[in-house]
Amino acid sequence: MDTKKVWFVTGASKGLGLTLVKKLLANGYRVAATSRNLKSLEEQVGPSSFQFLPITMDLTNNENVKAAIQRCVEYFGKIDVVVNNAGFGLIGTLEELSDLEVRENFEVNVFGSLNVIRNAAPYLRKQRFGHIFNIASIGGYSGGFAGFGIYCSTKFAVAGFTEGLAEEMKEFGVNVSVIYPGYFRTTFLSSGSVKTATEPILAYKSARESEQAHLSDIDGNQPNDPERAAEILIEVSELSKPPVHLFLGKDAYAVAEQKNKLIQQTMAQYEIMATSTDLIT
Results as ranks from 00 to 15, higher is better:
F106G: 02
N119W: 02
G140P: 06
F156V: 12
A136F: 10
G139E: 06
Y141S: 15
F76Y: 11
I117M: 12
Q127K: 11
S153D: 04
V158D: 03
N85M: 04
V108T: 15
I135K: 05
E104F: 02
Y151S: 04
V102W: 01
Y141W: 12
F129W: 13
H131S: 03
N119K: 00
S113H: 09
I132Q: 07
A146T: 13
V102Q: 07
Y75W: 05
A157F: 09
I138W: 00
A86H: 04
F145K: 15
E74L: 08
F145M: 13
Y141M: 14
V83N: 00
V83P: 01
L94M: 10
G143A: 15
I132N: 06
G144N: 14
G87W: 06
E163L: 09
V110W: 02
H131C: 01
I135D: 07
G147C: 05
S113D: 14
Y75E: 13
N109H: 08
Y123A: 00
I79S: 01
E74C: 01
F145W: 14
E163A: 12
K155G: 06
S113C: 07
Y141F: 15
T162Q: 05
L114C: 13
E96V: 04
H131N: 01
E95N: 13
V110Q: 09
R128E: 12
E96R: 10
F161D: 09
A136E: 08
F148T: 14
F156T: 05
F148M: 15
N109G: 06
E107N: 11
I117C: 08
R103M: 14
A146K: 11
N119Q: 15
L114Q: 15
R103K: 13
Y123N: 03
R125I: 10
E96H: 11
V110N: 07
T162K: 15
E95C: 06
G147L: 00
T93Q: 14
S142I: 11
F88V: 00
G144V: 03
F106K: 01
E95D: 13
R125Q: 15
E74V: 01
K126N: 14
C152Q: 07
I150H: 12
Y123H: 07
V81L: 00
F133P: 02
G140Y: 11
I150L: 13
S137T: 10
E95H: 02
G112Q: 05
V108K: 03
E163Y: 05
Y123L: 00
F145S: 14
N119S: 13
G147H: 07
T162V: 10
N105Y: 03
N105E: 15
L90K: 13
T93E: 05
S153N: 11
F76V: 06
R103I: 05
V116G: 07
